[in-house]
Design a binder for these strands. Structure first.
Lengths: 215, 215
DNA sequence: TATAGTTTCAAACATACGTTTGAATAAAAC
DNA sequence: GTTTTATTCAAACGTATGTTTGAAACTATA
């Protein structure tokens, strides 16, 4: 079988290099030669290990998807085990805790994967549309469900709206995609320390979610 | 001079086609042949009217940038004329009003431009980095300033954080970039009627912004 | 040490890219 | 009506793309 130490190292080097380049330049903006050069491997190595550029893209996500999903589910499992009907603060805390663990632990990809997700958000490659719902559908259902139970004054549709706002703000914040960064020459807030992001994000989200219904 | 009816029509057809394709496939994912084919013009027309693909990209933004900036500034001008120190609700309302006018008026680009901005957000082409701050720097300063005056219990840094969260949620919402859409096979909330977006967004944002300080 | 399997590599593959050309056509100016 | 200018067009430009090839180098098993 394959899986010699050296071989594994090569495919991992490719994944690492590709992940960073996909964030910076997107899928179409990243060429095979950029990837292999950055990884320090021969250009044929990508097709040898991953079959194609599309296959590499799939593998880049697959490496991160499962651990992050598991983490997120574990956090809401723990929350609901200790608290039958958790309040908004607790649900948001559990959700943010996942992003925080992800952003802090390099073994999970660190902030790199958050950025990749943020990009996939507006740049939906067909490959994602086919694989993301399968693994993250459950995550969304669990958190949106818990949020709904914590916000009985809102309709299901309203809960989904707010979950949408919540995730948008959260992803942008952790990924560091800041309107100030793009629109101003000297942004004041461009810190990206996950702990700092989380502390500033919490009160905003909790208050926003708890707001009275619009209807 | 140029500007014959036919010539203008050609360059406008190119801008329209390119704008849509850039949203769907990004800059690198959109080829000259895709653009000219979709616009129904010869492939050489882009270079004839815009010099290069980069030049076209610049022109696509330039067409929308100025009207939107003017609209946004006009709204805060009006707000501050009628109200020396507006409260949070009024500031957010003025800001959302701009997005709403933009999203509703096809002459301004409609939701198309919002989506383009949302994409530019995570896919920063060098051309944008050079042109956006020049025109939108003032917009950000004005609104962030007004927000700061309406939220005296927050530090300047905190105000910037919340402005970041506010814009992230708003742009995603109006652009329709929904986590539910990407992560679930049957999203509940994928409505994109600007009026509906605005009504759901308002209470969330106002409450989030008004939340007590994190420190 | 010989053999089988795995991984690397330089080179070439066909195709798509953005751009340029120069002639043909249309419009405007005189 | 002729000359100038502006626009369109098919074809080709050189370069970059993702992928494949087949031999070389390496690793493991016997």
């Amino acid at each position: 079988m394959a899986e010699s130490a050296k071989a594994q190292e090569t495919s991992v080097r490719i994944l690492d290099a590709a992940e960073l380049l996909f964030i910076e330049h997107g899928f179409d903006g990243t060429s095979m030669r950029m990837i292999t050069q950055s990884a320090g491997v021969n250009i044929a190595a990508v097709n040898y290990y991953f079959g194609s550029k599309d296959g590499l893209y799939r593998s880049v996500f697959e490496r991160r998807t499962e651990p992050f999903a598991r983490l997120t589910i574990a956090n809401i499992d723990e929350l609901e085990r200790n608290n039958a009907t958790p309040d908004v603060h607790a649900v948001v805390q559990a959700f943010i805790k996942s992003a925080l663990q992800l952003g802090t632990d390099p073994a999970l990809g660190g902030l790199v994967f958050v950025k990749l997700l943020a990009r996939a958000y507006v740049e939906p490659h067909p490959i994602l549309k086919e694989s993301m719902p399968r693994r993250y559908g459950e995550v969304v259902r669990r958190y949106a469900g818990a949020l709904g139970r914590a916000l009985p004054h809102l309709t299901e549709t309203e809960v989904h709206w707010r979950f949408h706002f919540l995730t948008s703000a959260m992803f942008s914040a952790f990924a560091g995609n800041n309107v100030l960064r793009l629109f101003m020459e000297h942004p004041v807030t461009n810190a990206r320390d996950p702990q700092l992001v989380a502390r500033n994000l919490m009160p905003f989200l909790v208050a926003g979610l708890t707001a009275p219904s619009a209807n």
